[in-house]
Nucleic acid binder design. Structure first.
Lengths: 226, 226
DNA sequence: CGGATGCTTCGACTACGATCGAAGTATGAA
DNA sequence: TTCATACTTCGATCGTAGTCGAAGCATCCG
């Protein structure tokens, strides 16, 4: 009828509270089963199953069968970016679903955004890499410089493996708490994995919060100065 | 209940086809009356009125009374950016509402994105300014350099006026057709206005298409080389 | 092979919201 | 003042989508 892409379909998928809760839960980056997602959304398994089918048909989720479990996850980085952008706007309107509690500051400090680090620390990470000219910015796109490649290889990240995947290595993602960009893409994912593997940070159970240890925090701040 | 902003409310607002049509129409940047928006959405005035009240309550729209007309517009740049991001995802899924016609290439070449230039030409504009070091990129944020300020003042844009407004002067906006960034913010708006004032380009009626004249196209391409 | 777990499908109920006609309010024109 | 236009509010109708119980598959375990 009118020109342009159909945003109503996507909007209505996100618009149902149960589905929105599931999507929010999946923003933590881990693949979850219908049973788990039903608990997150506060609905029965049957209803959850129907919602998940719709989300999958709409291209927001992908499904992986493993034994008698089915694991659902956001289908691609793009979905996470879009959701974070919605959250940014919702947060700016003061539309928060939760009573602000002790978790809130932790969430703003460091949290998982689909598969990479967001919050204060996520923003700092990108800023630091850009300041050190290890990442160059060109609009929405980021590019790893030669110095940047050396740097991440020194950290123990396999640059070749990142390159092989079809996803962009670097990518910006708008942070809803900081309202600035942080680092997404396969490099963002690899770095978060690195921090956790090194024992610098741990993910809190059933939450997006990333909790740094004292030692990890010190190492992170030294490694990525402003 | 759960942590994080409430995206369901925003989603459900966008999720209704009638409302989505109105929002899409308002992406053209002009403020429209309920009667006009009702026509765009294919509903009666009464229904439109109810939808508009909801969109305003949700913070997506603002309203300006002028005589016996009421003009609705997107409430801020942020809303346009969010919608464009949704369109990007919808387009990547092939969810387009329109039959691809002769208008489509024109739309991809140059169109209005709320209040600034998008499409191929919009992307080129930002790229050119960045290449000339008149804009510097730092994550999501853009900064006008001294050279950039001189440049836009030479073009006849009042830098002081841009500065006075509380909105950011430069800003990136993800382009759904090009899937790259173009220039938003008050400078983006001022530049589009400039192109139209100079007679280089005209906006097509009831459409987001921006049509450049031969002379205007030549001038634009010379002024903003890659 | 049972029996248990995880999930989907079916069917029926329910509630919410979109829709429009009719009536009410505001602004402008004659 | 009177009429017309632009819009909102009210009220009633109607559809659709979310919800869950019950039943049906699939997978794993002993």
């Amino acid at each position: 009828m009118k020109e342009g892409p159909d945003i109503a379909l996507i909007g209505s998928l996100i618009g149902d509270p149960a589905r929105a809760n599931m999507l929010t839960a999946l923003m933590a980056g881990q693949a979850l089963t219908p049973t788990e997602l039903a608990a997150h959304a506060g609905i029965t398994l049957q209803t959850a199953s129907s919602h998940l089918a719709k989300l999958e048909a709409g291209g927001l989720l992908t499904q992986r069968k493993q034994g008698r479990h089915r694991y659902y996850a956001l289908s691609e980085d793009e979905v996470g970016l879009m959701l974070e952008s919605l959250m940014g706007f919702a947060a700016s309107r003061g539309l928060t679903r939760h009573r602000p509690g002790p978790k809130d500051p932790a969430l703003r400090k460091a949290r998982v955004c689909y598969n990479h680090l967001a919050g204060d620390y996520g923003v700092r990470l990108l800023d630091s890499l850009v300041a050190a000219r290890q990442i160059e910015v060109a609009g929405e796109d980021l590019a790893l410089t030669d110095a940047g490649r050396d740097r991440i290889e020194a950290l123990g990240i396999d640059y070749g493996a990142l390159r092989k995947s079809r996803r962009p290595i670097c990518r910006t993602c708008l942070d809803w708490s900081e309202r600035r960009s942080h680092l997404a893409g396969s490099l963002g994912e690899a770095l978060l994995t690195l921090f956790i593997d090194k024992g610098w940070a741990k993910r809190e159970r059933d939450s997006r919060v990333v909790r740094f240890s004292d030692r990890g925090e010190k190492a992170f701040l030294e490694l990525f100065p402003l």
